[in-house]
Design a protein around this nucleic acid. Structure first.
Ligand SMILES: [Mn+2]
Ligand SMILES: [Mn+2]
Ligand SMILES: [Zn+2]
Ligand SMILES: [Zn+2]
Lengths: 135, 135
DNA sequence: ACTTAATTTGTAATCATTACAAAAATGAAT
DNA sequence: ATTCATTTTTGTAATGATTACAAATTAAGT
């Protein structure tokens, strides 16, 4: 895809096959995949793919601001190509994962502090698990 | 300490020496220690202490709502006895860690969802690192 | 004291991530 | 096209935090 190609170049990342496929996958799958999810998904298309490459590439994307990593749970780093301000909800019963949109938060940082990114992570019960629980 | 004792009992946790010391440590040290920090700090006082006990105890505290775990960075679970709504800031330059207080957030969850806890994690540059950078 | 349940401990296992060095691919220069 | 340097990818080994598990210890109840 030409458009992803240019997106990478514009951010100083040379678009190798591996990087391009990973970037494309992130943009087409908004289910916040883990590094392993991505690896497994792309293996058929790139049989020589190494998991190290997936990690290297994702770390580079995050460094360059092309993706964010969501650490809502320890031992589970999920990646998101949507870098606009939004939060995440994880159901502690079924594990369901959802984007949460919220109005521009009015957070006053201490004097002189400068924020690079915000992460709002919420845990609780999703609709179906909540109904199951209240019965 | 009698007061910590009762606090644990009230929440259905039998106050063993280990649990009491860990709970007390969390309440007296607001620097968001890791499990290992706690283990190292208490080892002189409880020479037989096991790291497994520290983990088991912290997990129990979190389950019962007596503490929260802050996953602002992967590979770094920090514990906080302050369970009231507040956020955390980590300096990506010096590693400094700060509490962030913010006005009651107005977050609308999807219909039927129920939140158990909110986590606001911010990364950026602290005052001194920011000044160092802009020079 | 005896019996049972709860807690702690030590060790081994797990598992995601990183370190590292060799191999492969790419690009520029001759 | 060949050479040579640079970048990227790959495979394997190492790391390190957390958990699993079973034995040992401690506490509680009779
Ligand atoms: Mn998202
Ligand atoms: Mn805090
Ligand atoms: Zn659910
Ligand atoms: Zn700093």
């Amino acid at each position: 895809m030409k458009i992803y190609d240019e997106h990478l170049i514009r951010n100083g990342i040379r678009p190798s096959v591996q990087r391009l496929k990973i970037f494309e996958f992130l943009h087409k799958n908004h289910n916040h995949p883990t590094a392993d999810n991505i690896y497994e998904a792309l293996l058929p298309a790139i049989p020589t793919l190494s998991k190290t490459t997936v990690y290297n590439t994702l770390n580079r994307f995050v460094d360059k601001g092309l993706a964010v990593v969501v650490n809502i749970d320890e031992h589970e780093a999920r990646y998101d190509a949507n870098t606009s301000a939004h939060g995440h909800f994880k159901c502690i019963s079924c594990g369901g994962f959802f984007d949460i949109h919220f109005p521009e938060p009015d957070i006053k940082l201490p004097k002189g502090f400068q924020a690079e990114n915000y992460h709002l992570n919420i845990k609780g019960y999703c609709k179906v698990c909540n109904e199951k629980k209240n019965r």
